[in-house]
């Protein structure tokens, strides 16, 4: 009578012992690497209806972010500028550029340009720009070097872990209150390392970002 289990079955335990951990490690790595917002979100840069370049306007020409995103210091949302803000200049410069046709059409018809949203938190998370800017967190800390982007892209994962990393230890991410839109602020520069928010006379109180759940899930 032949054996019930053929000879190769002797290798099964060995294969499980070797392959099991390998596959397990592979799955863990895959989830850790590919399911992270660092992979799913960062680098998202949708094509916009008008080829508006932050590199040209905010970088080369040095327009302050608040010239266009004027509500950022006083509201939760940083408003995307209405067409008139573009026409402040573009009724006087590059007036017949084909790249600006949609802007002119929108200005004449009063219908907004359908900009594509880049950053979007889940609806159950609460975020407000105002306290962050009032505490001296700069745009570039959360949005990266927008002034070097021709097309805006997501620079940070905006995950809960990312929010909390800063909320638990905000001091290293704070800068003098008049530098919030300064894109050249380098957190590793000597000036930044020497800056101590707790000794800044401009500040009236110590910042205490919320770490409790209802701070961000209200």
């Amino acid at each position: 009578m032949p054996a019930i289990f053929p000879r190769w079955t002797n290798k099964i335990p060995l294969a499980i012992a070797v392959l099991g951990p390998l596959v397990g490690a592979g799955v863990i790595f895959g989830v850790w690497y590919y399911w992270s917002p660092e992979f799913t979100d960062v680098g998202y840069r949708p094509e916009q209806p008008v080829s508006f370049s932050h590199k040209l306007h905010a970088g080369d020409m040095g327009l302050d972010c608040r010239y266009c995103h004027n509500t950022v210091e006083v509201a939760a949302k940083a408003a995307i500028p209405p067409t008139q803000t573009c026409m402040n200049c573009h009724s006087l410069v590059k007036t017949d550029s084909p790249k600006l046709k949609k802007v002119r059409d929108s200005y004449e018809s009063g219908k907004p340009i359908p900009w594509v949203r880049v950053h979007q938190l889940p609806d159950y998370a609460f975020f407000d720009h105002r306290p962050h800017l009032a505490a001296g967190v700069g745009c570039s800390t959360c949005h990266g070097r927008i002034d070097q982007m021709t097309v805006v892209q997501m620079d940070q994962p905006l995950s809960m872990g990312w929010c909390l990393d800063c909320h638990r230890d905000p001091d290293n991410n704070l800068r003098p209150l008049d530098r919030i839109t300064d894109m050249n602020w380098d957190p590793h520069s000597e000036e930044a390392l020497a800056y101590n928010p707790n000794e800044d006379p401009e500040r009236k109180r110590k910042v205490v970002p919320p770490e409790h759940c209802s701070g961000c899930h209200r």
Binding site: E38, R45, P122
Partner: peptide
């Protein structure tokens, strides 16, 4: 991670 892409972010769990 961090590759540029025009594809919108993937929502692995849609939750709310």
């Amino acid at each position: 991670q961090g590759n540029r892409s025009e594809a919108p972010p993937v929502h692995i769990w849609h939750n709310m």
